[in-house]
Nucleic acid binder design. Structure first.
Lengths: 213, 213
DNA sequence: TAGATTGTTAATCGATTAACAATC
DNA sequence: TAGATTGTTAATCGATTAACAATC
């Protein structure tokens, strides 16, 4: 999944974009520790990457630091939030109210990071109508398009079994969503205007075991 | 997190290793569909990468295909499992029996992928002793080192709050574990012999929102 | 001022891809 | 055989890093 090159203005490498949320997360932890200022060197040590890379990454977007001093943490956080478009709250639809879906619905970090789960959908009649997460009720996945219509929801999280994932994804896309975070262990076939990110713990485990002998 | 270069024999790029589990996952889906043979081109189309990359990646490990025909799916699966060291079952310790920990304990895909959660640990006295997952009981995190001692557990999953994550990680490492899958939204400070992989949905969300205007 | 750190350039390093001989 | 696809080479492309002038 690469960034599409906007003809004319040089687009910023997708790999750079992918690091910004990690920078933001780290800066917030520093802020929580009461810190006001940091440097590319300190950040790099925290993250195990070079200070040059951090400065280079940030330089794609502007000048945020001060020579001799470093970066004001609050200021840089706000700038990164603007760059990443998380200076507002994005509504998110969660599909799948199983064990994993419930965990996602309960997760407290979304709200402070720019996201709010506004609907939880499932196909199981036993589950529809049951409470979940923070004051939500599980709704019928069949009502998806009605629910999305006229709302400004553009993001979905899928916590459904692998066998259902492709069908669910297609229906999400038909309903007008174009950003999907997929927890199912399958690579989805989607049109090019849709962006999918994947979370699969097995992929991480198997990556680690390569190095275990 | 890079691969350490073994002096002498040229080490295989970590980024290549990271793709192998995705290849394996895709091959298994094809096998489940009743397919016997595939090609680098077909795989590449499935995954949205070039056929050349797939052939190049595999070529680091040997020759697994047949000109004019492609790859026998079962054979390539077995080879990838060997390469990734998932031709046996790795025991895994899960720390954290909250909502996310419960979802992980319930997840059915681990067993067929080379992993088995053998212990679930928590610090909450209310939780210790309660059943979780597939016939397990939540145990006391304080008993970690006893539990690991003499066992062959080397992998842990952390599903604990961010504020507890660094302490838990350090204790896991003290107990002798060297591979950690961390669901807490924090970059851990660990010695160089320890490998950590991270799963943070917010990082993925924020990556996606950059492209939403 | 002296010391520290940025933003940026140019060099290095590494990954991806196109192309094709080999061969099933 | 003719067609297809591998494994590999060399070229291209892109990302990382070292170094340093600028400057706080």
């Amino acid at each position: 999944m690469k960034d599409e090159k906007a003809p004319g203005k040089p687009s910023i490498p997708d790999i750079v974009i992918g690091r910004l949320p990690v920078y933001l997360r780290t800066l917030r932890l520093l802020a929580d520790d009461g810190r006001d200022v940091t440097s590319s060197q300190e950040l790099g040590e925290h993250l195990g990457i070079s200070s040059a890379q951090i400065r280079k990454d940030l330089s794609h977007f502007g000048e945020f630091g001060k020579q001799g001093t470093g970066y004001n943490i609050d200021f840089l956080c706000r700038q990164l939030q603007k760059i990443l478009n998380v200076d507002t709250i994005w509504p998110v639809v969660l599909v799948g109210a199983g064990s994993l879906g419930t965990a996602i619905a309960n997760y407290q970090e979304f709200e402070s990071s720019g996201f709010r789960i506004v609907s939880v959908l499932d196909e199981d009649p036993q589950k529809i109508g049951q409470p979940i997460g923070n004051g939500l009720l599980i709704e019928d996945f069949a009502d998806l398009s009605q629910l999305v219509k006229g709302s400004n929801v553009r993001i979905a999280v899928m916590a459904v079994p692998a066998y259902a994932a492709q069908r669910v994804a297609s229906q999400l896309i038909d309903a007008g969503l174009n950003s999907i975070l997929c927890y199912a262990p399958i690579t989805l076939a989607v049109p090019s205007h849709v962006r999918v990110e994947y979370i699969d713990p097995v992929v991480h485990f198997q990556h680690m075991t390569y190095y275990l002998r």
